[in-house]
Amino acid sequence: MIEALANALPHFRNTNSGQFFLMAGPCVIEGEDMALRIAERIQHMTDKLQIPFIFKGSYRKANRSRLDSYTGIGDEKALRILQKVSQQIGVPTVTDIHEAAEAAMAAAYVDVLQIPAFLCRQTDLLVAAAQTGKVVNVKKGQFLSGESMQFAVDKIKQSGNEHVILTDRGNSFGYSDLVVDFRNLPAMRAFGVPVVMDVTHSLQRPNQSSGVTGGQPALIETIAKAAIAVGADGLFIETHPTPATAKSDGANMLALDQLEELLVKLTRVREAVR
């Protein structure tokens, strides 16, 4: 399934390594220097371990709890930074879109369009993303089963686009927590598309009384290992040099200095289950 993505993604290296692929980067683009430094460091790690890598960064955060929450540095400015990452570092890029009108705009700068979990049933958004011809990564809603994501896949493929990825990011558990049901990964993989585990967002603790989402980053390794063990094709990990100072989602991010050690462990798990 990973090999099929190579035809649609420029710079998608190491696709014959038998490894999982990695979507990783900061939650939101905070600036050019930061984005390039993170992308370069992750590329160095993934090249060494022969892990295909897609750089992740949101050009804007539209789903925020509070009006004063950080949303970004400006759409076009952030998108141009993502484009520069692709051109200068030589890796494909992924970013979120939130409305149908954003699909064509973002597609001019990135290689993968990502549909946020809360929006995975929005038909107009899925169709608009599909019609750009870009790879479309749909995050499974926290309120849905893996089996129900068949309809998201159908909407994209019936709109003329065969390049679909599905990503799990946990299910709502009460009002302020998430739980990962690993049955969802093989259920979604049965649709014949690559399946990704969003490790860091699945460890969020949303809807806190402060209006700032919490998290459990100490469990990142646990969730990542389990996902690889049950057959995930890829992992999604948000990372930052200093999560405590990150503009968004710092509470559940992995420190960049810890990423390589984790990837080494995960390659061993991958080898053991192949």
Rank of each mutant, 00 (worst) to 15 (best):
A108C: 13
A101H: 14
M105I: 13
S86H: 10
R80G: 11
T95K: 04
D111S: 12
V91L: 12
G90E: 08
V85I: 13
V94H: 03
R80D: 13
A106F: 07
P92L: 11
A101L: 12
Q88R: 13
S86T: 09
A108N: 14
R80Q: 15
V110N: 00
P116R: 00
Q83E: 15
Q87Y: 13
K84M: 14
Y109H: 12
T95Y: 01
M105E: 13
V112C: 09
T95P: 03
I115G: 03
I89P: 06
E102C: 07
K84P: 09
T95A: 04
V85W: 06
D111G: 11
E102T: 01
V91M: 08
V110T: 01
A100H: 09
Q88W: 14
A108R: 13
T95S: 02
S86Y: 04
Q88P: 10
A106T: 05
A103F: 06
V94F: 03
Q87E: 14
T93A: 08
E99I: 09
A78D: 02
Q87R: 14
A106M: 05
Q88G: 11
P92H: 10
I81E: 08
I115M: 00
A78F: 04
H98K: 04
A100T: 08
A103C: 13
V91F: 11
A100F: 08
V110D: 02
I97C: 04
Q114I: 00
A107V: 00
R80C: 13
A101E: 14
V94K: 00
D96I: 02
I89L: 07
S86I: 07
L82D: 06
V112R: 06
A107E: 00
Q83T: 11
A106P: 06
G90M: 09
Q87A: 15
T93I: 06
L113Y: 04
G90W: 10
A107C: 10
D111K: 01
P92E: 11
V91Y: 09
T93H: 02
V91S: 07
H98M: 07
P116I: 06
Q87K: 15
D111N: 15
R80T: 12
Y109N: 02
G90K: 05
L79Q: 00
V112Y: 01
A101T: 13
M105C: 12
Q87M: 13
V112A: 05
V110Q: 02
A103H: 07
I89M: 10
A78M: 07
L113E: 01
T93K: 02
A100S: 13
T95D: 02
H98W: 10
I89N: 03
T93G: 05
Q88V: 15
A101M: 13
Q114A: 06
